[in-house]
Design a protein around this nucleic acid. Structure first.
Length: 575
RNA sequence: GCAGCCGUAGCUCAGUUGGACAGAGCAGCGGAUUUCUAAUCCGCCGGUCGCAGGUUCGAAUCCUGCCGGCUGCACCA
């Protein structure tokens, strides 16, 4: 169903062209202050000059606004259209129209959110853990932001291709395999992830200290990359072991990544030589200081695609991936959810891919994010200064949440409390991240994210649980389409107007790649519902009002559930 | 040195891409509970939008220059 802002945009466009004789953007937006109205058009101010130029007569914004309104046909949408200040056109939606719209949406399992008019094939590249290492907090943001974007864009019926670009290739594996061999470790024996990390540390040490070992490690890489079976087998075991570590973390986080989404760096290995050759033959890449590089305007240093020793780098892999995703997978939009420190790298890679013609008709979008900081404003670390393991972080989140649930609801049995604690604890960690604009650094704070006050996951989950509680007490569920909504009180109207906006929000999240817009929307929804809940009794009211309010509750619960689903956050029936 | 990001209330953050008197939450202060989960709600207090210019009807937002912070910068990823 068409979003309100789209309906207004169309009506105003028509009115502008009829009254002024030319086309212009009506600049429709939400009112910043609800005392003015619900939506506003800010076009008249800017248009006044153009009107004066075209007609050769002096005019002013308010007069232009008058002309536009004279031609404006909003049907029964608006209760009031007024001109204010220098020439703002304020629109107040009519409660009857609102009620009709919402009634229609309550019968729709998509809550009136339209699928994309032109569905696309969209690659989302996110998470990308390193093989032979445990996941740590540095992987958290990419994993959950990327997953949220994938869910939102997928909900619009675009075809999403999740790509987990594992760090599974490169010199470090030669080192690790050579070390395991030299330890006369039975390479057939299974190594735990923590063993692998320890071996890696020792291998690195020996690599730096022993030139003969360094040489051996380099040879092993060559053998691995040439596909020697023994080395390949050892490598596969390392990858498998690492997956046994990270897949449970994805599952626990409620992240939709599965093994079939893995396309690690190794996958592109066979394509790298061709990438370099093609860039050379197109004259895009050149030889410089023994390496093969691409210079990009605006950057002093080049993107190196082949080292002087013949080895390839991650830029080469990224270029191969773009070509593969565009040409083989047929993607027309490729989204990278990666650390903002990669900005220059991606700028150079995107520019190179564009010059090579590999991204024709493809939108390459980099959705960077900042660093997780501790309370001291420095990167989030353990007390001893180590990086925080994701597993430990999630353990602590659940443990803290379990403490809170036990305190608030001691009568629930332990298994139930554990289950709620999982939803609340993990949800809190994810939400505290998703609710901030991803581009800036953010401060990690356990107490704030687990608080039931303010813009937190537990607060949203609580609102959902409260509604569910009403329905448990109400007995049989109302039929959503039974009767029409009655929006008599300010709280009901405020809630209704907000419910109607969900489609606009989903659209902006997908377009701007900003999950925090959805969080802000859901928080606002929770606040409005809470106000409604305080002021408007549901079950005790007269039958018609009761039915209408139950329908509002049902819509709120479904909207909240959908929003939390898109964020990848659970919503327990009870808290 | 070059490039990028950032600076908004005591703290954590928004600010719909140039619109109306800059908004939330937390903390602080004061209220509300015979009522569907008080894990809640309502009110008050709190800002020279880093500083200075400029662009224009209009700037937290765009441009320039300072100040302060973070990040990246040739063969790691």
């Amino acid at each position: 169903m068409t979003n309100t802002n789209t309906l207004l945009d169309a009506a105003f466009r028509k009115a502008i062209s009829q009254s002024l004789g030319f086309e212009a953007d009506p600049l429709i937006g939400l009112s910043q202050n609800e005392t003015f109205g619900d939506y506003q058009s800010n076009a008249a101010m800017g248009l006044a000059r153009e009107v004066a130029q075209r007609s050769g007569q002096k005019t002013n914004p308010r007069a232009v606004a008058e002309k536009i309104i004279a031609q404006l046909d909003l049907g029964n949408m608006a209760e009031q259209v007024t001109i204010a200040g220098p020439g703002f056109i304020n629109i107040r939606l009519s409660p009857v129209w609102l009620a009709d719209q919402l009634t229609a949406r309550s019968g729709d399992n998509r809550l009136g959110i339209d699928p994309a008019a032109h569905p696309r094939k969209v690659v989302v590249d996110y998470s990308g853990p390193n093989i032979a290492k445990q996941m740590h907090v540095g992987h958290l943001r990419s994993t959950i932001i990327g997953d949220c974007l994938a869910r939102v864009i997928e909900y619009q019926h675009n075809q999403i291709i999740r790509q987990n670009h594992l760090g599974d290739w490169g010199t470090q594996f030669g080192m690790l395999i050579a070390y395991l061999r030299s330890q006369s470790q039975d390479t057939d024996a299974r190594q735990d992830i923590t063993d692998l990390e320890e071996f890696y540390r020792q291998a690195k040490k020996r690599f730096d200290e022993l030139p003969t070992f360094a040489e051996e490690a380099r040879n092993t890489v060559v053998q691995l990359q040439a596909g020697q079976s023994a080395e390949l087998a050892a490598w596969r075991r390392i990858v498998d072991e690492t997956r046994r570590h990270y897949q449970p973390i994805y599952d626990r986080l409620g992240v939709s990544l599965k093994p079939e989404h893995e396309r690690g760096e190794s996958f592109y290995n066979p394509m790298l030589q061709q990438v370099v050759e093609d860039l050379l033959s197109q004259g895009i890449a050149i030889r410089s200081e023994g390496a093969i590089v691409v210079f990009t305007e605006g950057f002093e240093n080049p993107l190196i695609i082949q080292k002087s020793d013949g080895g390839y780098l991650y830029g080469t892999t990224d270029l191969a991936a773009i070509r593969y995703r565009a040409q083989k997978l047929g993607a027309t939009r490729i989204i990278y959810t990666h650390d903002s420190r990669q900005a220059q790298h991606f700028a150079q890679v995107f520019a190179t891919a564009a010059r090579a013609g590999w991204a024709a008709g493809v939108s390459l979008e980099y959705a960077p994010f900042g660093t997780m900081l501790g309370a001291d404003g420095k990167p989030f670390k353990t007390r001893s200064g180590d990086t925080v393991k994701l597993k430990d972080l999630l353990d602590e989140a659940e443990e803290r949440a379990f403490g809170l649930v036990s305190q608030k609801n001691p009568e629930l049995d332990e298994a139930h409390r554990r289950q709620i604690a999982r939803a609340v604890g993990i949800g809190a960690v994810k939400y505290s991240d998703l609710s901030k604009d991803r581009t800036s650094d953010y401060v990690f704070n356990w107490d704030k994210m687990l608080s039931l006050d303010g813009n937190t996951a537990p607060y949203l989950q609580y609102v959902y649980a409260r509604i569910k509680s009403i329905f448990r007490k109400a007995g049989k569920l109302p039929s959503p389409s039974a009767g029409r909504l009655q929006l008599d009180t300010p709280q009901e109207q405020a809630l209704a107007k907000h419910l109607l906006r969900v489609g606009e929000i989903v659209e902006s999240v997908a377009r701007e790649l900003k999950p925090h817009l959805l969080c802000a929307y859901l928080y606002d929804l929770a606040v409005r519902f809470s106000s409604f809940y305080e002021n408007c009794p549901v079950l005790q009211s007269e039958p018609e009002i009761r039915q209408s309010r139950l329908a509002l509750c049902d819509l709120t619960a479904r909207t909240m559930a959908l929003g939390l689903d898109l964020l990848g956050i659970e919503h327990p029936e009870q808290m």
